[in-house]
């Protein structure tokens, strides 16, 4: 269809055409294969940071920074798509590994960050994720 090979203008159009075709294939393949892996990867990262933080319980500042990293990984994953139930399940798993104060703080931050999201109801999540509900209650009591 494209008679690029016969033109005198050089190889750049052919390379770009190949790049475009490659981009379409790569993009579609990536959508099909990796959709569910994002949140799992974020969970792995968050758990890894928590694990590191627990090992460093004496160094408060460093542990705090690591907890912040774990929060950021998970909160980012949920804020991108708060309607995905898998992400909330993963958050619950992470809250389970944390202490009371830490999980209450994360739940509070989550509620604050998700407030402006249109059409999103946090009470629905509280019903399906009891661990998150507990953390929310604890954050209210603080």
């Amino acid at each position: 269809m494209l008679s690029i090979r016969h033109r005198k203008e050089g190889f750049m159009p052919s390379i770009l055409c190949f790049c475009a075709f490659f981009a379409i294939c790569l993009g579609i393949m990536s959508i099909v294969i990796n959709t569910d892996k994002t949140s799992i990867h974020q969970k792995d990262a968050a758990l890894y940071y928590i694990d590191q933080a627990k090992q460093l319980s004496n160094h408060t500042l460093q542990a705090k920074s690591l907890y912040e990293l774990s929060e950021q990984s998970m909160i980012n994953a949920i804020i991108v798509d708060p309607f995905d139930p898998i992400r909330w399940q993963l958050l619950s798993e992470i809250l389970f590994t944390l202490g009371k104060d830490q999980s209450a703080m994360i739940a509070q931050k989550m509620a604050h960050r998700l407030k402006p999201t249109p059409g999103f109801d946090l009470s629905g999540i509280e019903k399906t994720e009891p661990r998150f509900k507990l953390a929310m209650t604890q954050s209210m009591q603080r």
Partner: peptide, 12 residues
């Protein structure tokens, strides 16, 4: 990935 696919499609 979506962004990449659309761009590739536009280029073609």
């Amino acid at each position: 990935s979506l962004f990449l696919s659309i761009t590739g499609f536009l280029v073609l």
